[in-house]
Nucleic acid binder design. Structure first.
Lengths: 257, 257
DNA sequence: GCTCGGGTTTCACTGAGTGAAAGGCTGACT
DNA sequence: AGTCAGCCTTTCACTCAGTGAAACCCGAGC
């Protein structure tokens, strides 16, 4: 029946959804089939079902895009918009006080996912895409998430090559390891020119009902007007405030990683 | 093979995703199976695959929730976060000027889906859930979307019973039809105590690259401090600004409805 | 006209998927 | 302790949902 024995229908459907990226948000059926490694007829049929349900939408140009229904269902994810709803008032407070970028992220395996970003209109530009992923070892939120991640996740990240974003990005595992220990000691992370040469971020943990770190919040500011030591208490207070609001609404977190 | 001949694997998988609602964000496997009308073993296997991919997450309490991966993929939907990204600066401007609630919504079939809401801290409480659906005939954004919807959608909505949210909600199809015509004439909608007795909203259309109305933006204010005629130009200007930014980034919209 | 890339449909074949049945575990209640 | 209900996982004989090579169509570009 299948040219790829053992490959389930479900996995084929999910492979079609996985074909879309920020760089390729619109795909023809043939592109979808190629990216999902499916013969055209198979892709055509599965795509037709996804379209009927709303997970994919086909535009006037014949290209398929992720459909609104998928985002609607996805918005029920406690770690996505659920967390965002709870964190947003505090994030807005932090923004009103500083008028700098405020970011919220969670850890998924060995990467972070940005959940929300309040962009300061006159603040330093940041590369964040809500719903997008980024490495753990460079950004403020990533460093916090990594510092409090299970040991096996930390080892996994430290064992892999660490990508360099600027000349100052820490890519030596030993140095990074010491930095993570410092974060755990002080309770906040500073990312200084680790991602772009003009930005510095200060991040603090957000804890779930059982006390474990489930997310991180940060301020991202232009380096020339930053004093991390002065910003840290603000960010940490925001992290604590959000932590308190995760008391009972957040539900039981999954074992990630 | 199947006790329900003709029911495809894909539709079963999608039925599992459809089992979650804002009222029931966390479900046991048995509940999932019941809601998706699947025997337990079938549900168990499909759920396991969804968990492996990240579409569902299982918490320490044994319950399943929508997983972050689904929201990540969903964030690529042009009509979801894609639209939000483009609209957000203008929404924030409108918020800074008014400090009232700002809402963004799109039409999906005969309902609206809220894409974003900037909540005024001292503004009237609104019932909006980002990612959630609502009827078209009562809210400001819903009225705009309905006024410019294809005729068949308008007829569909007008032919069905119109839900009453307050004593003042317009539920007479004839009255509503005349209201829609007025919206098209003036270019904005006013929803006065149609949803809650203390709120009034003013909404305007957002147009896509081909000139058709693809979304709506609104201010929601406490009624006792509202002058819709004064607010309308602000909201309309915001709608036009967002429309301009949809020029080439938005892609070709699907045929909805 | 020819080529290429975008697709849809057909149909003989098969293995992925099925669900009743059996079994296990836990917690609540008597 | 025993019983019951609810939560699940696993087994296995059976079958039909799914398959993809092949054939076909369309439109654009040369």
């Amino acid at each position: 029946m299948s040219a790829q024995p053992g490959r389930s229908v479900t996995s084929k459907v999910l492979a079609l959804l996985d074909a879309f990226t920020p760089a390729r948000p619109a795909l023809t059926l043939s592109e979808l089939a190629r990216r999902a490694e499916l013969p055209l007829p198979t892709a055509s049929r599965r795509v037709a079902e996804l379209v009927a349900w709303g997970a994919l939408e086909r535009g006037g140009d014949g290209r398929y895009r992720i459909g609104l229904r998928l985002w609607e269902v996805g918005s029920l994810a406690p770690r996505g918009l659920g967390l965002r709803e709870l964190a947003l008032p505090t994030m807005e407070d932090l923004y009103e006080v500083t008028h700098e970028n405020v970011q919220l992220a969670v850890r998924q395996d060995a990467e972070l996912v940005f959940i929300e970003r309040i962009a300061g209109r006159h603040a330093v530009p940041v590369l964040t895409r809500v719903g997008g992923r980024f490495a753990l070892h460079a950004t403020g939120v990533g460093l916090v998430l990594l510092a409090y991640a299970p040991a096996e996740t930390q080892e996994q990240v430290l064992a892999a090559p660490l990508e360099r974003y600027t000349a100052l990005t820490i890519t030596d595992p030993g140095r990074l390891r010491r930095g993570l220990a410092e974060i755990r000691r002080t309770g906040y992370a500073v990312s200084d020119r680790q991602v772009t040469m003009d930005a510095l971020s200060v991040a603090a943990p957000i804890r779930g009902p059982e006390g474990s770190v489930v997310a991180a919040i940060s301020l991202v500011v232009a380096r020339h007007r930053a004093d991390p030591v002065a910003l840290a208490p603000l960010v940490q207070a925001a992290g604590r405030t959000i932590s308190r609001s995760l008391g009972t609404s957040y539900g039981s977190p999954p074992s990630t990683g």
